[in-house]
Design a protein around this nucleic acid. Structure first.
Lengths: 110, 110
DNA sequence: TTTATTTATCGTAATATTGCAATATTGTAA
DNA sequence: TTACAATATTGCAATATTACGATAAATAAA
């Protein structure tokens, strides 16, 4: 079919999955790392940093924005993009929870 | 085209993206949460826990295994699956790094 | 050996993703 | 107004993902 059966899973599971999916592309990881590296969030030069055409970068930015990973606002002729701390802290908490609890398991047969 | 231009990005970016992509499906988030919740890693009942057919679950487990998120070993007639702490700690470190550095930025215009 | 049981693989249909050329939109400057 | 710059959208081709029925493979039990 191709469409995920999201209705069978919890809101939390769908939220984590949607955000992880958005990060699941090297170009989007690179965008996140670039947004983290620049001190301001006026980011009109993302296109020049990535090895992809402008429409492709625009599409990746759109997906990150749809997933809530980044926020964007119009800044004259340029667009101001920056990371969304709220979304990223949700993911941080998810993985922190896993790594904390993974070591409390009694048996590790694998 | 449909194929990611992985060759244009760093190994680290591709690794993070591949693991995030593997977690980017609610069924696979549910699998991870289930593996974390059970105390042992003999997990022959994952199929019963998920609202998906057996071949579909098997396919999701395969993708998680390919991404290194889980490990599996044959345990007689059942299969023993468990989380891979190494892979998950890489993701934990990635998001911890982001959330730590996100607040050191001078300007937050968005 | 025969029969279950458990998990994996194959085949296939429906849908989604990726990437870019072409084009549109929006704001700035002349 | 016209021209330019920056970003978004459209449309399309190539490929990947999702899901599951049917089937295979492997072990356990009878």
């Amino acid at each position: 079919m191709g469409a995920s059966k999201t209705e069978h899973f919890s809101d939390k599971q769908n939220q984590i999955a949607a955000m992880a999916k958005a990060i699941g592309h090297p170009a989007r990881v690179a965008i996140i790392e670039y947004l983290l590296s620049v001190d301001t969030c006026i980011c009109g030069d993302i296109v020049n940093v990535l090895p992809l055409a402008q429409p492709t970068v625009s599409q990746h930015l759109k997906e990150l924005k749809n997933a809530g990973i980044i926020k964007g606002s119009i800044e004259g002729t340029a667009i101001c993009y920056c990371l969304n701390p709220d979304a990223l802290s949700v993911l941080e908490a998810f993985f922190a929870h896993i790594t904390i609890n993974i070591n409390t398991k009694k048996t590790n047969c694998c």
